[in-house]
Structure formats: structure tokens, C-alpha cells
Amino acid sequence: MTGGRAPIGRATRGTTGTNRLRRVDRWIARHPALRRSDDPLVVDLGYGARGWTTLELWSRISRVHPAAEVVGLEIDPARVDRAREELARVRAGETSFAPDARVHFDRGGFEVPLPGGRRPAVIRAMNVLRQYDETEVVNAWERMAVRLQPGGVLVEGTCDERGRIASWIAIDHTAHPRSLTISLRLADLERPGIVAERLPKALIHRNVPGERIHDVLQAVDDEWERAAGLAPFGPVQRWEGALRALRARGMDLPDRGRWRLGEMTVPWETVAPR
């Protein structure tokens, strides 16, 4: 609901496919911002040409928080109409999604318009800022973050078309970035540094010598190579061995329990642009 005003931002390219965002969905489902919220509302900002990934998001987070609700927002009114048509099929029991899915679609952009002034616990904005200039990123973060509940999180990032390579930044309700997460499909992974092609806009142009993100990706690649001796035991063991070595070198790597998923999270200060 935009109240007659044009949504803020530009329409995404709309290429999001089914299951593309499964990695970030799993991460959101376990995040304290959602699990501890009294109003577990999630906004899927810029869901693309179809509404399937919004429905997938609800399916995943509702397993952890049954009261969760998801609102899909798009700037293009034709996309909103199409998503509502798809939702009508869901309600009619014609899809694999639950007919009573707590999902709806509306028109909106970075202003994150919600009825009754509600504030989301989480805003997922994946593959939204890729078409923007780096100088526009902080302003977009601020516009979205101000709409969050206290303690809420904005998840802004990028992934490849198949969802096998992803990265995202967690930004708090004061628009302060808190962490960067890298999530990779470990099977057949040649090197972790391939994520450089799918870094969030705030970092993708910073992967050059002298920048922290370049140092981190180089260190991960180095330890992945050194852990090659663990490869016969499987890619998960190799990945965990590489991350253990990074931790031994002094890198702050929380969320060890998620390493097996191909994830690696570092505090924002570890990768922040210089």
C-alpha cells in the first residue's frame, strides 16, 4: 500500500527462480530477530516476476515460527497482480503450498509500506541492489532499516541463478551492518573465492588488494587448498578444516554450528570497506 505515492526504487530484473533463495531462507528461519519477535512479520522486498520465492520463504520460516507472516512487495504493479493470481491458486489447493499460507502481496519499494504502520521483524532484499550504484547502497539500507522492529534485521545480498553461491549482509534496525555471511554448495566446489562474483553491492567492487574483503577471500581460498588432504572424507570435512584453520589464525568465525551447511559468517568489521 503506497498511499498514492510512487514506490521508492527501481523494479528488479525479475529473474528469481524456485528454490534460488533456500540458503538465505534457512538462515532467516533461525535468526533471533524472527524467533524472538512478538509479531513475526517478514517482508520479501523485490521478489521478482513470480511470487513463488515469497511462498517458499513462508514455508521455511513457518516450520520454526508457525505464526510467521510474509508480505511480498514489488514495484511493478503487473508483478503484484500476477503474484496475487498465483496466490489464488494456492488458496484453491492447486499447488504444493499450504492453502492457508500466511502470505500476501502488495506494491511497494524501499519505503516498505505496511497496513496499520506494522513493522517487520525481518526484511529480505536479495538480488535487489545489484543494479544500483555503490553510492546508493547506504541510503537504501537506511530507508528499509527504519521500518524494522527494534531488534529486527535487514538481510541484503546476492546469489547465483541456481542458489548455490550466495552472500548477504545482516543490517540492524539502526542501519548498521553487523555481519557478512557466505553460503556455498560444497559439492563440486572448486574454491570458496568464487563467491566474489556474488558479493553484495557494498562489497563486490571492493574485492581488490588492500581491501578487507579481498584479504578474507584470499585467506579462505588458501586454507581450502591447504585442507585438500581432507577431501577424501568429503567436502564438508574439508570446509570445516579450512574454517578451523582460519579461526586458529585469529579470524572471528561465530556460528560454528552452521559450517556444515557451507556457511561462513564474519563480523562486518572484518570485511568493511576501507
Rank of each mutant, 00 (worst) to 15 (best):
E86Q: 07
G234L: 08
D133P: 08
D81F: 09
M251D: 12
W224G: 00
S179M: 13
G210V: 02
R143Y: 07
G193W: 00
L261E: 15
V146S: 15
I28M: 00
L114T: 04
F110N: 02
R36Y: 05
S62P: 06
A272G: 04
L45G: 14
W224F: 07
L180R: 14
W259N: 09
W141C: 07
R84W: 05
D39R: 09
F110H: 06
E69T: 10
V266Q: 02
F97G: 03
W259E: 14
W58K: 09
I8T: 10
R124L: 14
A6H: 11
R5C: 11
R212S: 08
A231K: 14
H214C: 07
G3T: 09
S167Y: 03
R89E: 13
A187Y: 11
E86N: 04
F105C: 09
W259P: 05
A175Q: 09
E85S: 12
A245N: 02
R238W: 03
L186D: 08
R162Y: 11
D38I: 04
E223G: 11
V80Q: 11
G4I: 09
P66T: 00
I8K: 11
E190P: 11
Q149G: 12
A98P: 08
V112A: 12
S179C: 12
E86R: 03
F97Y: 14
L148H: 10
G108D: 12
T2S: 14
I61K: 01
V42D: 09
R260C: 11
A67H: 13
I28E: 03
W224M: 03
L184G: 02
H104P: 06
E190I: 13
R84F: 04
R26C: 07
